[in-house]
Nucleic acid binder design. Structure first.
Lengths: 160, 160
DNA sequence: ATTTCTGCAAACGATTTGCACAGGG
DNA sequence: CCCTGTGCAAATCGTTTGCAGAAAT
């Protein structure tokens, strides 16, 4: 299910090579950390995870590596309403998924929809552009919470 | 076309009154500034504009007023890919519009689409939620730029 | 009179950067 | 070797906050 770490490595290091950039133990650790989870994470959280794989990784390296991962398309940067941006490692497996954020419990549900995808492409072309990244964010309130006064949903649920 | 400033004032001060908050000259200036344009603006830009209307307005007051405007629904906070968030005063006139951002020239095109709107509502209900805010951001590249090597579009164009 | 608002300046916190050394090709 | 990458600590920059006085109700 998870894309093999090797394919992620190949993909990024292919990208790095094109730019004349080098392979290092620290970048390996950051990549391994980023794809060791399906959860969204902040830069700081990635720093902690990467440090567990290789304690020579510094915060600066994490902050310098993150943009490379985003530009190469391995990771997607998202603003889901929290105080910092988060990074989503699930775009390799689900390149067109979108997000619903519950305003009550802050839970995030990922969903895919082929129809929206299609409409986005049409709209973009009609305006004279070629689509690159499309993102939908829906902020909503939990019906169950409104009815029962508490939200029973479990954190790990994903609509994918 | 622009909603009368009075209606904006009424709307916000209605909201403020509900919360036991007060009407002040500084808030008036910030509101007037925010709705003196159809362009997106940053907090700092709003500060400059508000100061032109009343030079007693401080940066702190702008930063304290901005969340009130967002929570009351008058202004929408957007992450369009720049380094800071921007605020969009056009949601009063076009409550469901979305954004396309050109990766080449950074121009922003606003568009509305009833079909996407509908799909977002369906998806949200299907997942057991009631939609509150829905946003679509499309990042794209200008076809004309690709063909001609330069982007001839003018900054003020809006797809609404 | 009571409470909210304000400007100021200091504090904050996430991110970025300059530097000198380490290490990949 | 040469040049990129690194950790460290300092710098940056947008935003937030504590405070004492000003102003709204």
């Amino acid at each position: 299910m998870t894309p093999s770490r090797d394919s992620v490595h190949d993909s990024l290091y292919g990208y790095l090579a094109e730019k004349g950039l080098r392979r290092t133990a620290q970048r390996d650790a950051v990549i391994a950390a980023a794809f060791s989870t399906k959860e969204h994470f902040s830069a700081e959280e990635l720093y902690v995870m990467a440090r567990r794989m290789n304690d020579s990784v510094s915060r600066a390296t994490v902050y310098r590596t993150l943009p490379l991962l985003v530009e190469s398309g391995l990771l997607r940067e998202l603003d889901l309403g929290g105080k910092t941006k988060v990074y989503d490692p699930n775009f390799l497996e689900h390149p067109t998924h979108n997000h619903l954020v519950c305003l009550d419990c802050k839970k995030i549900i990922e969903f895919e929809d082929q129809n929206i995808e299609l409409l986005e492409n049409c709209i973009t072309r009609r305006l004279g552009f070629s689509p690159k990244n499309k993102m939908v964010k829906i902020e909503a309130r939990c019906d169950e919470l409104k009815l029962r006064g508490s939200c029973s949903r479990r954190p790990a649920e994903s609509g994918i």
